[in-house]
């Protein structure tokens, strides 16, 4: 079943996948054991002439242990899943790497806008560059997304990165990822945001480090026109 997972091209994607895999094997084993036992009992103890059911109420702890001990094992395995999940979660959601490339993400119905600081390296200055629907990032470098929404709740989802973060109006939410391989990957909205929710998508373009620098320079040069066009397009879209 897990072969249906998309490729993973982020640094923390492997941890997410390994938690998924751990759960898959644990619950897979339980699933097979319980269903197997169920099927076996159903076949083995089907009604036969002359055989009476075994009168057993399991009111004492000793008898109830037949279900309590498996439940205790479930509890232990649960805790191991919790431990794995918590460590992955800390890595993905509770830490922000320093020295990250910063990009501002603005979600609005039904488009993603990505804003880069201009040559001055600061957000909120006139030389900022905003791009519609394309997130350009360098490979092998952490990218910090500073996420805001202009209207309703959206959720930025990049399956190949195992990345997902809701974007909530009225809040600024920081998230990060680090892509490992150059290429082009799809991103989308995974929180119902209106009639064209299904169409609120975009692309992540991962450059290798050199290409990213030259892309950025090129974008700065053509910036003023681009901003005009794109913010106009976004309003219409």
């Amino acid at each position: 079943m897990l072969s249906w997972l998309p490729q993973n091209v982020s640094t923390f994607g492997g941890s997410v996948d390994s938690t998924i895999r751990l759960i898959y094997y644990i619950v897979g084993a339980w699933f097979l054991a319980t269903e197997g036992l169920l099927l076996y009992f159903v076949l083995r103890y089907r009604r036969k002439q002359g055989r009476r059911a075994f009168y057993k109420r399991a009111e004492t702890i000793r008898q109830a242990a037949w279900v309590l001990i498996p439940a205790a094992i479930v509890l232990c395995l649960d805790l191991s899943i919790d431990a794995s999940g918590a460590s992955t979660w800390r890595k993905v959601k509770e830490t922000l790497p320093s020295n990250a490339v910063q990009v501002e993400v603005t979600a609005q119905r039904f488009a993603w806008l990505f804003t880069y600081p201009g040559p001055d390296g600061k957000f909120g200055t006139p030389d900022d560059v905003t791009i519609l629907g394309e997130l350009h990032v360098p490979a092998g470098k952490p990218v910090e997304l500073i996420m805001r929404s202009r209207d309703v709740i959206h959720s930025l989802f990049i399956p190949d990165f195992r990345f997902r973060q809701d974007v909530v109006p009225g809040r600024t939410i920081d998230a990060w990822f680090e892509a490992t391989r150059p290429g082009s990957y799809e991103l989308g909205c995974s929180e119902l945001c209106g009639d064209a929710h299904f169409d609120m998508r975009g692309t992540v373009i991962v450059h290798d480090a050199g290409d990213y620098a030259s892309w950025l320079r090129k974008t700065w040069r053509s910036a003023p026109a681009a901003v005009q066009n794109l913010s106009g397009a976004a309003k219409k879209g």
Partner: peptide
């Protein structure tokens, strides 16, 4: 089946991927 698949969604790490 429903019970065991819930574990994926109850785990905060796996839920990053499976949520929604």
């Amino acid at each position: 089946v429903g019970g065991v698949t819930g574990i994926f969604l109850g785990s905060e790490a796996a839920d990053i991927y499976f949520h929604g």
